[in-house]
Simulated scan of single mutants.
Amino acid sequence: DGEGLGRLLAAGRIARVTGSYIGRNKEFARRYLGGGVEVELVPQGTLAERLRAGGCGIPAFYTPAGVGTLVAEGGLPWRYGPDGEVVKASPAKETRFFDGREHILESGITTDFALVRAARGDRHGNLVFHRAARNFNPLAAMAGRVTVAEVEELVEPGELDPDTVHVPGVFVQRVVPLSPAQAADKRVENRTVRG
């Protein structure tokens, strides 16, 4: 609540969310259940592939993920009314069999803007991500028509080993270097420590 996209949500600037996990944001839950925001929940691997497909210019693809569930059959609540009734539900998806196995048709995702955060980058937009940040940041960067990259460490062009670049600059339109204090500020939603 009150951080990152939570600020846009609180200001009423987010009307629709496509994601695999909505987190513990109380304002998001309130808006979703009260009809203030539409939510399309997608299996995580499918979400990653939809972003990759969109970034590669692929309009749609078939996947077995979600077959036999409401993801395929439709009926997942996308938007609630103020009274708690479902006013918009997910539609049924086209299916097709490949080698005797049923698949559903999923569309690629492109976005107006992609906001990513890289560990290192140069002013041309070549980006390097650390660890789990490589899971979705490169895919999101590719899917954005305009990609804005926050960079924890800005280096000069040519300093990045080309074999370590996870997103080439052709996918990035804006680079925002972070101060050391901003780079150190990394929110963890749920910290678990074992003793």
Rank of each mutant, 00 (worst) to 15 (best):
D1S: 14
D1W: 07
E3A: 14
G6P: 01
L8K: 10
G12R: 06
V17K: 06
S20G: 14
Y21S: 10
Y21V: 04
G23P: 06
R24N: 12
K26R: 15
E27Y: 05
F28S: 00
F28A: 09
Y32L: 11
Y32F: 15
L33M: 12
G35W: 02
G36F: 01
G36D: 02
V37I: 12
E38Q: 08
E40I: 10
L41H: 03
L41R: 09
V42T: 04
V42C: 02
P43G: 02
G45V: 08
T46C: 03
L47D: 02
A48G: 09
A48L: 10
E49V: 08
E49M: 10
R50C: 09
L51H: 00
R52A: 10
R52G: 05
R52P: 00
A53E: 02
G55N: 03
C56Q: 15
G57A: 00
G57M: 04
I58T: 09
I58E: 07
P59A: 00
A60Y: 12
F61T: 01
Y62A: 02
Y62H: 06
Y62K: 02
T63A: 00
A65C: 08
G68C: 04
L70Q: 08
V71F: 10
V71I: 13
L76T: 03
R79D: 09
Y80C: 03
E85G: 09
E85R: 14
V87A: 05
K88A: 15
K88H: 15
A89D: 02
S90E: 08
A92H: 03
E94F: 05
R96Y: 09
F98W: 07
F98D: 05
D99I: 09
D99S: 12
G100E: 07
E102Y: 06
E102G: 01
H103T: 03
H103Q: 02
I104V: 10
I104L: 13
I104S: 07
E106T: 01
G108M: 02
G108H: 00
T110I: 07
T111C: 08
F113D: 13
A114G: 06
R123G: 10
R123Q: 13
R123A: 14
H124A: 13
G125L: 00
G125Y: 00
N126D: 07
V128A: 07
H130M: 13
R131I: 04
R131G: 09
A132M: 13
A132H: 14
A133M: 12
A133D: 14
R134A: 12
N135S: 14
N135K: 12
P138V: 01
A140I: 11
A141G: 05
A141W: 03
A143W: 05
R145S: 12
V146R: 15
T147G: 06
V148Q: 01
E150R: 10
E150C: 11
E150K: 11
V151A: 01
E152A: 14
G158K: 07
G158N: 06
E159D: 14
E159C: 07
P162G: 06
T164M: 13
V167D: 00
V167H: 00
V167W: 00
P168M: 08
G169F: 04
V170T: 14
R174C: 10
V175D: 01
V176W: 04
S179P: 02
S179R: 08
P180R: 04
A181G: 11
Q182K: 09
A183N: 05
A184M: 12
R187L: 11
R187K: 13
V188W: 10
N190S: 15
N190D: 13
R191H: 14
V193S: 10
R194M: 11
